[in-house]
Design a protein around this nucleic acid. Structure first.
Lengths: 121, 121
DNA sequence: TCCTATAGGGATAAATTTCTCCCCTATTGT
DNA sequence: ACAATAGGGGAGAAATTTATCCCTATAGGA
């Protein structure tokens, strides 16, 4: 596994939340788990652009940060379920705030993002 | 300059806001500009852990995404000021929500983050 | 005269994150 | 026998982001 060479900043609230939410798919994982998509395969279907591997890794990190719990059922074929912890649930309103702002400004955002991309290519 | 090889996802609001806020220092830049630290040198002092270079690059991206504007004064020594656009101002409540959650859970966050770091080293 | 502050950019290295490919387990269905 | 499904993990490549180093220019102060 990759080992960090520099320590993260943990000064203020923004540093701290950044440390647990920074990861390409983490916010979406929390969101979909909250929506009731609990099993890894469901989450992968909800987020088809992510590789299976990275979702596992990011789920593990969310678990280590105590935002979700994982329950493994000893059955065959295997079954696992993730759920938000109480702590993780307190993040949902914050994630909603992010998503709502994005939704409310959808057209404008898409426009500026694409404009920038084109100017670089 | 680096040229993207894969396109970003722009499906939902979370994708879109992620695209404009994803960057190690962007949220803090918006925050400090909103607090009145308008000049590049002030921003660098507020965020001493960031390299000068990266702040410039991320400021440029924020500008291209129309969240901030830049005004250059043709004086010597040089002077420049950034300000939030109206669009950028609408992000402040969202950033506050992030920061507040981080502040409210400061102890717990620091604890789980450090615990995880130690277990990896 | 030399150092500092101010703003910025190019080239390149280093760090970090994400992806791809392959492998393992055991059961059910074809 | 073989594929599909479900969950997971290692190795290494590729992509992306961030950091470092060096250079431009001018004014003012020690």
């Amino acid at each position: 596994m990759y080992e960090r060479k520099t320590l993260p900043n943990l000064h203020c609230g923004l540093d701290l939340i950044g440390e647990v939410l920074y990861g390409k798919w983490k916010i979406r994982l929390l969101w979909f788990i909250n929506e009731g998509h609990l099993r890894p395969s469901e989450l992968q279907r909800q987020i088809p652009d992510a590789s299976r591997r990275v979702l596992n890794i990011q789920l593990k990190e969310l678990e280590e940060h105590e935002l979700i719990t994982k329950k493994i059922y000893p059955v065959v074929p295997p079954k696992a379920e993730y759920r938000l912890t109480e702590f993780g649930q307190t993040l949902i309103p914050v994630i909603s705030a992010l998503g709502n702002w994005g939704d409310e400004n959808e057209d404008r955002l898409r426009s500026v993002i694409l404009k920038r991309l084109k100017s670089k290519s």
